[in-house]
Simulated assay, not measured.
Amino acid sequence: MIKKSKSYRLFQSFNILFMLLVIAVTLYPFIYVVAQSFSSEHYINAGKVFFLPKGLNIDTYKEVMKQQDFWINYKNTVIYTVVATAISMFMTTIFAYALSKKRLKARGFFLAIVVFTMFFNGGLIPNYLLVKYLGMRNTIWSVVIPGAISTWNLLIMKSFFESMPNELEEAASVDGLNTYGILIRIILPLSLPILTTITLFYAVGNWNSWFGAFLYMDKKDMFPVQLYLRNIIAGASATSVNQGTDTDAQQQVAANIKSVSIVLTVLPIICIYPFIQKYFVTGVMIGSVKG
Rank of each mutant, 00 (worst) to 15 (best):
V83Q: 03
I270C: 10
G283S: 07
I58G: 08
M217T: 14
Y180Q: 05
N256Q: 06
W210L: 10
P193E: 03
F50A: 11
V25C: 13
S100I: 08
K158E: 14
Q68K: 14
V174G: 00
F120G: 00
S159E: 13
A213I: 02
P274I: 04
R9P: 00
F214V: 03
V78R: 06
N178V: 10
M19A: 09
A238E: 15
L52P: 03
K258R: 09
L10C: 09
S88C: 04
Y133R: 10
L200M: 15
L264N: 05
F161G: 02
T197D: 09
A106N: 11
E63N: 12
I257K: 07
A236T: 11
L21T: 14
S37G: 02
S191C: 03
L17P: 00
I269G: 05
L177T: 06
K219N: 12
K6Q: 12
S237V: 10
A236D: 08
S5R: 11
S163Q: 07
G135N: 01
N121T: 01
G244R: 01
G47A: 08
M89N: 07
E162P: 04
I272N: 09
I182Q: 09
K62Q: 12
H42Y: 12
I87A: 14
V204R: 00
F95K: 02
V25L: 15
Q243K: 10
P189H: 10
L111P: 01
Y43V: 09
V49Q: 09
M65I: 13
A84E: 08
M164T: 00
A172N: 00
K102V: 08
I79T: 13
N178H: 06
T282D: 13
I113P: 02
G291M: 07
F211P: 00
V78F: 14
V82W: 05
Y133Q: 13
Q252W: 09
A98Q: 07
Y97A: 06
K101R: 15
K278T: 02
A172G: 07
P165Y: 10
F50N: 08
L99H: 03
V289I: 14
I269D: 08
A234G: 03
M91S: 14
F119E: 01
A254N: 10
A112V: 13
S13M: 12
I16H: 01
E63V: 05
D175H: 03
Y28S: 03
Y80K: 05
L99T: 02
A98M: 13
A86G: 11
L27P: 05
Y43D: 14
K132C: 03
R137M: 15
A46Y: 09
I94F: 15
I233D: 06
L99Q: 01
F38Y: 12
M136L: 15
M19E: 04
V260Y: 04
K3A: 10
S7K: 14
K4Y: 13
F95M: 13
M164D: 00
I94G: 03
L229V: 08
T117A: 00
L17A: 14
